[in-house]
Design a protein around this nucleic acid. Structure first.
Lengths: 344, 344
DNA sequence: CATGGGTACC
DNA sequence: GGTACCCATG
């Protein structure tokens, strides 16, 4: 059976808001390490992967692996019945056909309980590519949202190019053409191509941009592995969280830093202020110039996850799917989208 | 060629929001004095005139007069891609078929560039009447917005009457009739019928109430005349821009004075405080009682310009088009609307 | 009150 | 597929 208690209903609510338009039904794969969801979007063009690591719950127990087939529209409705700061407990018996959700008001005597019907869903375990990306761009999630929203007013697709100059988003439309260039933030630049240190953080992803020796630091020992590609995918991308270990050998610091999606700034000050600054930084790491074209409709959809993390990472290599990753403590949501070829 | 740099994208954004529903295509007439736009609304019932004087730009260069035919829907989309505080640079080569817009984030490393296609638009130079109005009412723009919005819920048209009592807006509908009376603000009353002194300010308008010899002018000559009754109006009110050549030899002074739409208070203190109070004042200036009926649909539309100026001026004479004017530093937007006759 | 998103209609 | 209208959210 599963019994997982989450500190705040807000996380689940935001998560559902982020994916409910992309996916209607999906299996929440529960096991002792946490809860994972992987699904193709309704038109089978994009892939979404969500991880909620056991460590991110106030308490988590799952005796054996169990898939919970959920209709996301139903779950969204049920979650709307929770207040953002309610403590949510998810419970499901083995072989159960319902998921029980209990909402407890933080302070009080209000207890709400819902039973949502489950369904059998073909577990199309999608193989998520373990690509080593040629370029990784970390930027404020709100900036990404703004850019794709803006450009979607002009055309249907966007060409994303990463060079040492920075990252450029270009869209061509009937009425106008436009492009937005984000230069890497000063002080962050050194990192380009040097991504070492990223590792750390718990929910980090592993996408490394090319090898780097960076990897340095471990940081994670304990937590870090959280979501990790399970054991096998290792090494691949982690995204977000690269905290910076870089040189900072003091890992301990790293750990605490990121609170929601925040990364840590590179060597800069780790003060709160430092973190805030970091959220605003644009960090470009690349091994070679990449240029890919994507459907803006999907990117706009992905950008709804900005409520989950202040930063977003874009991982790219020519001719392979883009990985858009939003990370937070003990969890992440990643989207994969194949590039358009030619002028389709 | 044209190269005009605007301090804040917000001005253009608000301007487009104000007129995009009224006009779909229009020529932005650029010359060394600034940028002007004049167009009939889509149903050819109302006329809108916008002026952005060169002095209002951070830098402005326009070698020769050039009309830029713009689809306002496209421009609106492109402007939505700018943040309110972005610095916008408008560029167009002679004979160009595209307008280039560059947005620079105040602080940073974000640079966005758009190329919007231009089109050829019949320059229907509309003759703007140089009426000497019998009544001029200056009131808070928000108040005007509220009144026309309220009355539009009741009926389709509104009768506006100006008397020494004040200005009364009356609407009759199937479900209810209603009227709103605004009395002139104490202390401002003296101005009624005495409008002299207004001139000053840079962007003043010239609408004088009553006689004035102003009329002047054709307007178009070069630009100055633009809309103002040109120099002659002196003494009367100017509203916006008249920069004045008029008599004021000291034009210079005028120029700087008005900041956003504000007129100058009459002789009262010009202190900031004074100006703020002034924004809330209702000033009635009239030579005779006027009573005119207009379509509320258009007035509601005009009132969207309230974001551009804290004050609005209504200029009226019986049986001639109403002039609704919003003025700000170095620019204005004016609307002309013919009264309804009988009970059409 | 305004802006954005979604749904329906052309 | 695009545009317009209505509803909901901030």
């Amino acid at each position: 059976m599963l019994e997982a208690k989450l500190r705040e209903a807000a996380l689940l609510k935001k998560l559902l808001d982020a994916i409910k338009e992309l996916v209607t039904d999906a299996n929440f794969e529960c096991n002792e390490e946490g809860i994972n969801l992987q699904a193709m979007d309704n038109s089978h063009v994009a892939l979404v992967a969500v991880a909620l690591e056991a460590a991110g719950f106030r308490s988590f127990r799952c005796d054996r692996p169990m898939p919970l087939g959920v209709n996301l529209t139903s779950l969204t409705k049920v979650l709307k019945c929770a207040k953002d700061d309610d403590i949510v407990t998810l419970k499901a018996a083995d072989e159960a056909d319902v998921l029980n959700l209990v909402y407890e008001a933080k302070n009080s005597d209000r207890i709400a309980e819902y039973d949502m019907k489950l369904m059998d869903i073909d577990a199309d375990q999608l193989g998520i590519p373990d690509t080593e990306y040629e370029a990784r761009v970390t930027m404020p999630a709100a900036e990404f949202t703004r850019i794709v929203r803006d450009l979607s007013l002009l055309g249907e697709s966007v060409r994303i190019e990463v060079s040492k100059e920075g990252i450029r988003f270009t869209s061509e439309g009937e009425a106008a053409n436009g492009n937005v260039l984000l230069k890497h933030t000063e002080g962050k630049i050194g990192k380009v191509q040097t991504k070492d240190e990223d590792e750390g953080e718990g929910s980090t992803q592993k996408t490394k941009v090319k090898e780097e020796k960076d990897d340095d630091v471990e940081m994670d020992e304990d937590q870090e592995q959280e979501f990790k590609p399970t054991s096998d995918d290792e090494g691949e991308d982690e995204q977000d969280k690269d905290e910076d270990e870089d040189e900072d050998s003091g890992k301990s610091k790293k750990r605490k830093k990121k609170a929601n999606g925040a990364e840590k700034p590179s060597k800069k000050a780790k003060t709160k202020k430092g973190d805030d600054e970091d959220d605003q930084a644009v960090v470009i790491e690349m091994n070679q110039h990449v240029s890919l074209t994507f459907s803006l409709k999907y990117l706009v959809n992905f950008s709804k996850s900005a409520s989950l993390s202040a930063k977003v990472q874009l991982m790219m290599s020519n001719d392979v799917p883009l990985l858009v990753s939003y990370d937070w403590d003990n969890g992440y949501i990643r989207y994969y989208l194949a590039p358009k070829i030619g002028d389709e």
